[in-house]
C-alpha cells in the first residue's frame, strides 16, 4: 500500500493570510451547483440520521472512545518509531557501504512486497507461539506485555511503516543536491553535523508531502490489528454488528471517523510543511 515514491518538487507554500484563505474558501463553496450538492448531501445525512437505527450509540460510547484512542496511539507511535527506523534505512541505501545498503534494501523489498496482514499474522501467531517455549522469556519482566496482542500489532505496523518510508527517505536523501553537502564539508563540518544540519533537514523537506500520504495509508492499515484481538475502533464497530445485527450504521460511522482522522493527518502535515519550507523561496 504505497503511494508513488517519487518526491514532487517543493511546491511553494503560499503565505496565506487567514482572511484571504477564508475568502477563497467562500468563493469555492458559493457556486450554484456546489450549493445544490451540499444541500443534497445534508439532506441525505439528515434522512440517514432520522430513519436509520442509532440507538446503540450510547451503550457503546465508552468502548468506542477507548477504541478510538487505541487506534490513534497505535498510529502515532508506529509512525514515530517507524520513521526513526526509516531514516537509517534510507541513509544506508542512499549512501551506505554495500554491507549496509544490501540488507536495508532487502528489508524494504520484503516489507513492500508482502501484504501487511500476512506480516501481522506471522508476527502474532509465529512469535506468539514461539515465545512461551522459552522459560526465560516467561519469567522475564516483559512477559505480562508479551501475552497481550498490542505489542505484536505495534511491531508489525512499525516495521511496515519503516519499510515503506525507508524507500521514501532513500529517494529524499538522494535528491538533495551534492553541492549542499560539499559546502558543508568546505565549512569543515563533521560528517554527523552535515547529516544533522544539512542533509536530513533538506531530505525531510522533500519527503514531507509523500510522508503525509503514506501516513494516511498507515492509518488505513490500522484496522487490520482487529484481526489479532486488539480492540481498536474498527473492532468496536464489528462488535456492535455482531451484538445487534445492525450492519450499515456502525460501518458508516466508522467511515466518518476514519475520514476525520485522515483530514487531521492532512492538516498536521500541511502545517509541518509550512513550517519546514518557510526558508525556501517560491
Amino acid at each position: 500500500m504505497s503511494a508513488p515514491t517519487n518526491i514532487p518538487p517543493n511546491a511553494p507554500v503560499p503565505a496565506a493570510l487567514p482572511g484571504n484563505a477564508l475568502r477563497s474558501l467562500w468563493r469555492e463553496v458559493m457556486q450554484p451547483h456546489r450549493l445544490v450538492l451540499i444541500a443534497l448531501a445534508l439532506g441525505i445525512a439528515v434522512y440517514a440520521g432520522m430513519t436509520m437505527r442509532w440507538h446503540w450509540i450510547p451503550r457503546y460510547a465508552d468502548l468506542a472512545l477507548q477504541g478510538f484512542w487505541r487506534t490513534l496511539w497505535l498510529l502515532a507511535l508506529s509512525c514515530l518509531l517507524g520513521f526513526m527506523l526509516a531514516v537509517p534505512l534510507g541513509l544506508a541505501q542512499a549512501a551506505g557501504p554495500r554491507f549496509l545498503a544490501a540488507p536495508a534494501r532487502a528489508f524494504c523489498t520484503v516489507i513492500r512486497g508482502t501484504p501487511l496482514l500476512l506480516q501481522l499474522w506471522l508476527i502474532y501467531f509465529g512469535l506468539g507461539s514461539l515465545f512461551p517455549q522459552f522459560p526465560w522469556i516467561r519469567e522475564s519482566e516483559l512477559w505480562p506485555y508479551l501475552r497481550q496482542a498490542w505489542p505484536y500489532a505495534l511491531l508489525a505496523l512499525t516495521l511496515s511503516y519503516a519499510g515503506y518510508e525507508g524507500e521514501v527517505m532513500r529517494g529524499a536523501f538522494r535528491s538533495v543536491p551534492h553541492g549542499q553537502l560539499e559546502a558543508g564539508r568546505a565549512f569543515g563540518l563533521s560528517r554527523f553535523a552535515i547529516l544533522r544540519r544539512i542533509w536530513l533537514p533538506q531530505a525531510l523537506q522533500r519527503a514531507l508531502p509523500t510522508l503525509g500520504g503514506e501516513t494516511v495509508l498507515q492509518m488505513k492499515a490500522t484496522p487490520l490489528v482487529a484481526t489479532i484481538t486488539v480492540i481498536d475502533i474498527y473492532a468496536v464497530a464489528s462488535r456492535v454488528r455482531q451484538d445487534t445485527f445492525i450492519i450499515y450504521e456502525p460501518l458508516l460511522m466508522l467511515a466518518v471517523v476514519y475520514l476525520m482522522i485522515a483530514g487531521l493527518i492532512t492538516l498536521v502535515f500541511r502545517l509541518l510543511e509550512r513550517r519546514y519550507t518557510r526558508g525556501m523561496t517560491a
Partner: peptide
C-alpha cells in the same frame, strides 16, 4: 472518500 477510508471498511 475511497482514498481516506480503510479498504477493509
Amino acid at each position: 472518500v475511497v482514498r481516506a477510508v480503510p479498504e477493509l471498511i
